[in-house]
Design a protein around this nucleic acid. Structure first.
Lengths: 240, 240
DNA sequence: TAGTGGTCTAGACCACGTG
DNA sequence: ACGTGGTCTAGACCACTAC
């Protein structure tokens, strides 16, 4: 445990806290750097070092000549940061989404552990099918805590304008910053084969994905079956 | 195309070129920052910004009070950066390696494309089995270009002291900085089932991994079948 | 104790974007 | 033309490591 916390780390923390509190909305510009530096009692150089870290974590975006902005979940950031599937040519495109079912339920032991909830806590249970070019690609079984999304309804979910994460951010002030996925190989069950248009015995990727907001707060978790006929999961290890 | 390249970017390039040339060996310390700054005709602050970038890419490692060192492939870096498999508890351990076969061959069209070689160029063809706790986990079919590893023999490969990437680095001066993996689901063939101790029909992860050195120079490529009985592939998307 | 990288400052000038 | 972030400098002091 470091006794002495550097000034730029403390500035970083205070800035992050202000962002989390919603002091500036997603997409909105922060005050100019000299003003922020004065407010936090630091030099511009030190303030910049704090901002550098938040930019590296995609919480802030710098635009030279214009300003520093609060990061927001657009289709582009979604595709670049959270959608791992590429086609044979290595290209990415956002899939179409098809809502299969929307229910209220209670968290099982496994779901409760992943979402850091008490067992039996109310959750939304959503089944969703993602397709590219009318070919089914991903079957999602999503669970999200009632506590974070109190007034969510099937209509709100189905009629969202952008991605699911963008809905979390714009309507509930919850910003997903990281997801963790665990990938195994599995044989698709009969119903999954029908929905994904596969003929048994069909091997699929079985991905358990949990999304987190700041402070590693779990936002949603899903079990995802992926048909890798024409697309594959791309993973880059090492630098960058 | 930027007309004006910032000084710290030019310093970064010259530093990276010196590293690639092997001016300092992996694990060796660079000269102190004030001396490097003077050599490159920049202030210490600018030199530090260049070093920051190379540290972020894992090419350099800073140790306060001691110096700045050339990064080297230890078992730890291997595990942390290039080995994606974790057990149920989320823990990682390096697997044992078992050499199945070592041959000389010619690059097929597919291999040649991945390794940026002319078709038919000489390559080494290595089959390798990775196990954890005497349970087979990964079956690797590795291809590497003769050109990069001219005097490689089965004995040198089999009797290496550390990891394969560490061998590339210490004996051939080739440092892997990035790998790209494409993951699909597949059913293991009969021989793969035997080697991985699976009973058909057995779903496995089929991973095509290509490793790159600086300038995106391909170093090796492998087709890897992974049995996900007790371990899964962990992938983190978004920040960090 | 000497030498290393880590933090912090103050200020000058540049490149870019917006009006 | 103005205001923004981007680059670059010079120097002071701190924290850590090695001897």
């Amino acid at each position: 445990m470091p006794r002495r916390v550097p000034l730029y780390k403390r500035v970083r923390q205070r800035l992050a806290a202000a962002l989390e509190k919603g002091l500036w909305r997603p997409g909105e510009a922060l005050p100019p750097e000299p003003m922020l530096a004065k407010r936090f009692g630091a030099s511009v150089g030190t303030l910049r070092k704090a901002v550098d870290e938040l930019v590296a974590e995609n919480l802030l975006v710098r635009r030279q000549g214009s300003g520093t902005y609060v990061g927001s979940h657009t289709r582009d950031t979604m595709l670049a940061r959270f959608f791992p599937m590429v086609d044979r040519a290595g290209d990415k495109r956002l899939p179409q989404s098809w809502l299969l079912s929307f229910r209220r339920g209670r968290a099982s032991a496994a779901i409760a552990a992943l979402l850091h909830l008490p067992r039996g806590a109310p959750v939304f249970e959503i089944d969703n099918l993602l397709s590219l070019d009318d070919e089914p690609l991903i079957l999602d079984r999503i669970r999200l805590p009632h506590a974070l999304f109190p007034d969510l309804t099937e209509a709100i979910f189905a009629e969202r304008e952008a991605t699911i994460y963008a809905l979390y951010q714009s309507r509930y002030g919850v910003t997903v910053v990281r997801t963790e996925e665990s990938i195994t190989a599995a044989l698709a069950e009969e119903r999954a084969c029908q929905l994904l248009r596969l003929t048994p015995p069909a091997p699929v990727l079985r991905v358990v994905r949990t999304a987190y907001a700041w402070h590693s707060q779990p936002v949603d978790t899903r079990v995802r079956l992926i048909a890798t006929r024409r697309h594959h999961y791309r993973s880059v290890l090492g630098q960058r």
